[in-house]
Design a protein around this nucleic acid. Structure first.
Lengths: 181, 181
DNA sequence: CACTCCATGTAAGGGGTTACATGATTTA
DNA sequence: TAAATCATGTAACCCCTTACATGGAGTG
């Protein structure tokens, strides 16, 4: 149940509408905690019921547009949750299942898909590197910026690992299974 | 819907009961595709309905114990799925949300939790290293072993990345926020 | 006037988690 | 004979995904 907390964090950073949240998510917290707009609207409604956030019609905006603000109870909840202990994230990768199937039943022609994913990981890495250059190249950084940079570095390290590993996977599959197919 | 395929793979490797699958999962595919025994029983029942696997009472075993075998349709499905293209795994880490909350509202005392997770990641890494020594230190490896090793290396690289990153996170949080809590 | 973007939502279905339930077999 | 382990399952709940629905506002 931590999408709620991701939303609370985003609202603390800057109060806004569900639509704005959905878009901002794609470019910030969404990099490491993805959510669709349907999830976001549902959780916002629940949090309003619970008294964690309040909504008000935006004047001068489009009809029906709301702005969400955090309430004291929401702030308390965010602090309570942040201090809570939880299981660290697990690796959960369907490609590893595919590879194990390949090992069990014989070559399944996974190299094409591996190449496709390699390109995606490289692209994601390039995106992160661009953000790094744009936002964090000027030292010294504030405490806030330093933590944001730390978060970005988690993404960079993850994608770098993926890129390297995927290259190794391709090398091994191609070694054992020459150009044919 | 890829738990079914993980189960098919495991059954191809060695036909067995749902209970055995649940236990074997914890020590093989479960490292990168976790599932509880309830999920496993449910998916096995569905796959039997679909004609992907067959079950038969085990003679000489405990009452009610079944053995699942893969059927031709299951094998076909496994191959079809393996060749399918899909989105690569996403990073999804609640700690990054917590850090962002910390950046937004001020120090939340995350170092204790980071230390706890660091220890868990180091422990997981040690487990993987032990498997590496035990199963993959004698060269050359068969194609199957080479792929199993590749899968293990995905886990090793992931945990190594986590360990390094978590240490960096601790350094940054402690720098800005001296011993006091 | 049609198209796109803004902005909100409902509904259905699947997957995952947790709690609970049942009974047989081995082990102390 | 009591406890632990083997072995299977049901039920409830929540989260996530996908498809569908609605209508206003700006743009060509």
């Amino acid at each position: 149940m931590s999408l709620q907390h991701a939303l609370l964090t985003s609202i603390v950073e800057k109060p806004c509408s569900g639509y704005d949240l959905a878009r901002r998510f794609d470019k910030s917290i969404g990099y490491f905690w993805h959510a669709t707009h349907q999830q976001i609207y549902r959780e916002l409604a629940r949090m309003e019921e619970q008294g964690w956030v309040s909504s008000s019609e935006v004047e001068g905006g489009r009809a029906g547009k709301k702005r969400f603000d955090i309430l004291p109870a929401g702030r308390m909840e965010l602090q309570r949750w942040a201090a809570e202990s939880a299981a660290p994230m697990r690796l959960r990768d369907d490609m590893l299942v595919r590879l194990r199937a390949d090992a069990a039943v014989g070559p399944l022609g996974l190299t094409g898909e591996l190449e496709r994913r390699l390109a995606l990981h490289e692209q994601e890495l390039a995106t992160y590197r661009a953000i790094e250059q744009r936002d964090f190249s000027r030292q010294p950084l504030s405490r806030e910026a330093e933590i944001h940079y730390l978060i970005l570095k988690a993404g960079i390290s993850f994608e770098e690992g993926r890129v390297q590993w995927t290259k190794e996977a391709l090398a091994i599959l191609q070694k054992k299974q020459p150009p044919a197919r």
